[in-house]
Design a protein around this nucleic acid. Structure first.
Lengths: 348, 348
DNA sequence: TGCTAGCACTCATTAACTCCGACTGCTAAC
DNA sequence: GTTAGCAGTCGGAGTTAATGAGTGCTAGCA
């Protein structure tokens, strides 16, 4: 893009994307003239379109067809939206969202899920939510509960509730005082830390001669926490995966299958989102190649509690998606989620 | 079916289903003659097919096409398999299955999931597993663990491990001796029972004046258990849902979407299986109407530990599926699963 | 110089038609 | 009861023609 486009070119491009999003069909010069600029003739628009084609903004499927937008056109369009503000939601929509968030949800995972549901329902696209908090969960306390047969239940209590429970066998049975001593030692080492810190922890440097007798239980606890971190970093929820099949872009089984395979695999979804800096509030990516979901656009928004980004949620849809609406919804959800999460925080 | 079919008719029918399963195309009289009965002419087979058509076993898509089997033909075919024994698995297949079950899985849910994976991988159809144990889980013990701020953690220990943990607030704080007394009373009422018994339990009849002071905690525990039962009866796992899209029967997006919608909704899957008596070892249902998955056949097998049916697993595929193989696999899995589950039992 | 009206041209889409070949059903002979 | 042979049926593939949406270009006008 060496040079700024003329105002008129921009207007035409915007109109073209608008119409194309609505219809999915190549847009003719007459379409644009009728709906957007009756003050000039279609021939003039044709001349401009011809120029835009040379600049790589639009394409013609064949000689006697209208134009379809290319990626740069979408990018310009999206840039305009972000600049001028997104489409406001209707009253019904905001009411719907508030209602859905009315009943209290305690677990972060539930909130993610609910958010993804709402986004998918309101936009009618496939949505997802990824909570990235994972490693930042704070270990409050470790509890040991003796069970029968020399087994001990280990509970790991965090600021998000109990993240894991697991029974372990204690070598040689549970002797008197064992529980109390072990609990104290474990909490000395683990309590007050963030689970992320423990990723590559070297237990040897933490343990003294005194604690070495409890080596087994230390190992077990560490393993539990590490498993938790591995499983819960980038916890992914996808909602409305089948909605994509309603759009003609995915009206063939081959593509549909591909899409569903990617979207059902949480690792792939995480990868799709990789590279988004936490600092970016909105990210719009159009037609990401070799991801298995080319022909798609992905819009994500970062959600914060205070200053900390706790997750991203977003929409994946056809390139010609209703960007105005989607960005509007994600923006509203940002506020709504902020409130829900903050309230939740206070309650604890 | 007023009268037994002649041997030759049966043979022709069997051949027809065989070929149709392999090719998915209408089968001509010549196909049957070539592959299965070169001793008679195709004209003879045509005459027999004509008779079979009159009897409702086969159909002709149009005048100049071969025949395709109808439900009664499949049923006869499946009956033969069950009678004559299913196709044996290849050595690679049994090795594959054994390998997959090699690493120990502790939770019933994990075993279900693994079983579904195996079945889907070996057969190449969509599979599912439903553990119906649900209500039969035995309550071993209830543990109360005091946490800070007057909260108490309730742990419900069953013969399947800890089924639920939840923190509750205790009115007026946790007084000295409260934990011990409450634990004893709770266990008096709940320990040793099956969770299913507690479905519509009337607490009033169980409580005495003495226990009435602990009414709150009784209510809480009962609620936890009931939630668990509601969530865990008919725990459903589906694997390889997308495999169905490989079959030409589901080569259009509309049908594919329908299928996926049904199969992704665990309640619908449960419903599909409803009506199978636990006592039935194998159930084959072909083309179940108004279920959203007509054009499908569903084969399920019951899995037992000792004499108790702990779940069903099965395959859902196109009507023309490889019944021999599927029944063979399910049968083998029956033994394999029996072993896994029994071992597991002994370990506890 | 920029805009526009008008026209010739292009090309996807659809419908109508034909041809081919895969099967069957029927019949007459064995 | 079986079979060879043949006429008849019908779907699918390929061809052609008609349609119409939309463009690019050009000549004339402000």
């Amino acid at each position: 893009m060496s040079k700024e486009l003329s105002e008129r070119k921009k207007k035409i491009l915007h109109a073209l994307v608008d119409v194309y999003i609505a219809t999915g069909q190549p847009v003719s010069s007459a379409d644009i003239q009728k709906g957007y600029m009756p003050e000039v003739s279609s021939a003039t628009i044709r001349a401009e379109l011809s120029a835009l084609e040379a600049l790589g903004y639009v394409d013609q499927p064949h000689t006697s067809a209208g134009r379809i937008p290319l990626k740069p056109a979408y990018q310009l369009y999206v840039g305009d939206i972000e600049h001028n503000g997104a489409g406001a939601l209707t009253d019904e929509e905001t009411a719907f969202i508030r209602k859905k968030f009315a009943d209290k949800l305690s677990e972060v995972r539930d909130i993610s899920k609910r958010a993804a549901e709402i986004i998918s329902d309101v936009t009618n696209y496939t949505s997802f939510a990824v909570s990235s908090r994972g490693g930042n969960v704070m270990l409050d306390e470790i509890k040991l509960v003796p069970l029968k047969d020399g087994k001990v239940l280990v509970l790991i209590v965090t600021d998000e509730g109990i993240i894991a429970d697991k029974t372990i066998d204690v070598e040689g049975g549970v002797k008197h005082g064992y529980i109390e001593t072990a609990t104290r030692m474990l909490n000395n080492v683990f309590a007050g830390r963030r689970v992320g810190e423990l990723e590559g922890m070297d237990l040897d440097s933490e343990l003294t001669a005194e604690t070495d007798a409890f080596r087994d239980i230390f190992d077990a606890v560490l393993a539990i926490i590490q498993t938790y971190v591995a499983e819960h970093t980038d916890d992914v929820v996808v909602e409305g995966a089948l909605k994509m099949l309603d759009y003609p872009e995915y009206n063939n089984v081959e593509d549909a299958k591909n899409f569903l395979a990617v979207i059902s695999d949480h690792d792939s979804v995480s990868e799709l989102l990789a590279g988004d800096e936490d600092s970016i509030e909105f990210s719009v990516r159009i037609g990401k190649e070799d991801s298995g979901v080319d022909k798609c656009a992905i819009i994500t928004a970062a959600y914060k509690v205070g200053d900390e980004v706790v997750g991203r949620a977003g929409v994946i849809g056809p390139e010609r998606m209703d960007y105005k609406k989607v960005i509007g919804v994600l923006d509203y959800m940002k506020k709504a989620l902020g409130t829900v999460l903050d309230n939740d925080k206070e309650d604890e």
